[in-house]
Amino acid sequence: MENRLKEIIESLIFISLEPLTLEKIKSVLTEFKQEEIEQAIKELLDTYVSNERGIQIIHSGGGLLFSTKPEHDSFIKRLLKIERKGKLSSAALETLSAIAYHQPITLAEISALRGVDSSSTLKTLLQKRLVKIVGRKKSPGNPLIYRTSEKFLTYFGLNTIKDLPSPEELSKILDEEDIPEEEDIAEQ
């Protein structure tokens, strides 16, 4: 019975294009006990870690998702005739981190944080659905307010926004890495 449950869950994850949440799995498999489901998921993930498989199940964007293993990247690219995957520009990354750490946030606030006008970068991020509009701020001009989206989490392989290091941890990283970073920039 337990094996069957493992298989069922595996098929649910397989068929789902978006990260499949635990809640969703539970809501579908009403005939099983919650603890059974959780246990089966754990066992299922273990089989993928230990097994000689090209694919794996990962926690991403708050749910479970199939992905290929990173070491097979070059072969997949060959199959799909892709030389490299497009990366975000550094302006886009900077804008995203400003939003991620200061959300909910307005365009003016983002621009102030970065010291440059960020409207076009923000527009691209919206198009890529990495950020979303969540409403308007009750302040003069009622500016739109933005947050990072669910796609943001999956894109960066985060399970929740809390997976990002806290501002305190960032400061710590900065203190530790101050010297190497200097050289980094000078060399660039």
Binding site: P70, I76, S97, A100, Y101, G157
Partner: peptide, 23 residues
């Protein structure tokens, strides 16, 4: 701003890791 810079280099690392995993 420095914190944002640090966060964005961190996101870059994450991005590179994730781009290797095809979904």
């Amino acid at each position: 701003y420095q914190r944002i810079k640090a966060a964005s280099s961190l996101l870059r690392e994450k991005e590179e890791e994730e781009l290797l995993k095809w979904k």
